[in-house]
C-alpha cells in the first residue's frame, strides 16, 4: 500500500479533545459531518484546507486522551492518507486500525518534515521518504493482517463478513439459536 500526500505538521501530545472536540458529538452523523470538524480544537480552519490524501504528521503521543472514535473516524472521512508520528495514544492507534487509517510510527518525523512537504510511504516495504528534502526512513513493518484490515476499510467490513458467515452457517444447519 503506497501513500503519497501533502503533509500537515502538529505538535506533541495532541489529544483527541483537540482532534475532535466534544461540542460536535452527535448520536448519528451526516455524511461529511465528522470530517468538517477534524482538528477543530487546535485549528478551526483545518477541515476546510485539508484535501483527501493529505498526511498528518505530529510530534510524540498523537491522539492521547479520550477514547472518542470520532478522532479516527473524522480522519477516515476526510480521506487522510496516513498519520505519522514518533508515537501515538493507544486508543487512537486502535481506532485508526479499526477505521482503516494507516498509522505510521517514525521517530523525529516532526523535525524532518515542513508543512506542505510531500511524503511518500510504502507500508509493505516499510519505507518513508520526504520528496522535498533528503530525508528517508525505515518504518516498522505493519503486520500483514493489519495491512489487510486497513486495506479492507477496517473492522466494520470484517464484522459484516463474519456476521454473514455465521448467518449462512446457521441457515445451513437449520439452527435458529
Amino acid at each position: 500500500m503506497r501513500i503519497l500526500g501533502r503533509s500537515w505538521v502538529f505538535g506533541r501530545n495532541v489529544n483527541t479533545d483537540l482532534i475532535f472536540p466534544k461540542t460536535w458529538f452527535r448520536a448519528a452523523y451526516e455524511p461529511g459531518e465528522m470530517a468538517s470538524h477534524l482538528m477543530s480544537g487546535i485549528d478551526e480552519g483545518f477541515a476546510a484546507r485539508v484535501r483527501p490524501g493529505d498526511i498528518i504528521v505530529a510530534d510524540a503521543n498523537f491522539g492521547c486522551g479520550s477514547s472518542r472514535e470520532e478522532a479516527a473516524a473524522a480522519m477516515r472521512e476526510a480521506g487522510i492518507g496516513a498519520v505519522v508520528a514518533p508515537s501515538f495514544g493507544r486508543l487512537f492507534t486502535r481506532n485508526c486500525i479499526n477505521m482503516g487509517v494507516p498509522v505510521v510510527t517514525c521517530p523525529d518525523i516532526h523535525l524532518r518534515v515542513s508543512e506542505g512537504d510531500t511524503l511518500e510511504i510504502d507500508l509493505e516495504a516499510g519505507t518513508l521518504r520526504n520528496r522535498d528534502s533528503s530525508f528517508a526512513a525505515t518504518i516498522p513493518q505493519i503486520a500483514a493482517e493489519a495491512l489487510a484490515l486497513i486495506r479492507d476499510g477496517g473492522l466494520r467490513p470484517y464484522t459484516r463478513r463474519l456476521l454473514e458467515e455465521r448467518r449462512r452457517q446457521r441457515d445451513g444447519t437449520g439452527d435458529v439459536a
Binding site: 486508543l91 466494520r156 456476521l163
Partner: peptide
C-alpha cells in the same frame, strides 16, 4: 475501546 470495537463485540 472505541464505538466500532464495541459495536463489533455486540455483533460477534
Amino acid at each position: 475501546l472505541g464505538h466500532t470495537d464495541v459495536g463489533s463485540f455486540l455483533a460477534i
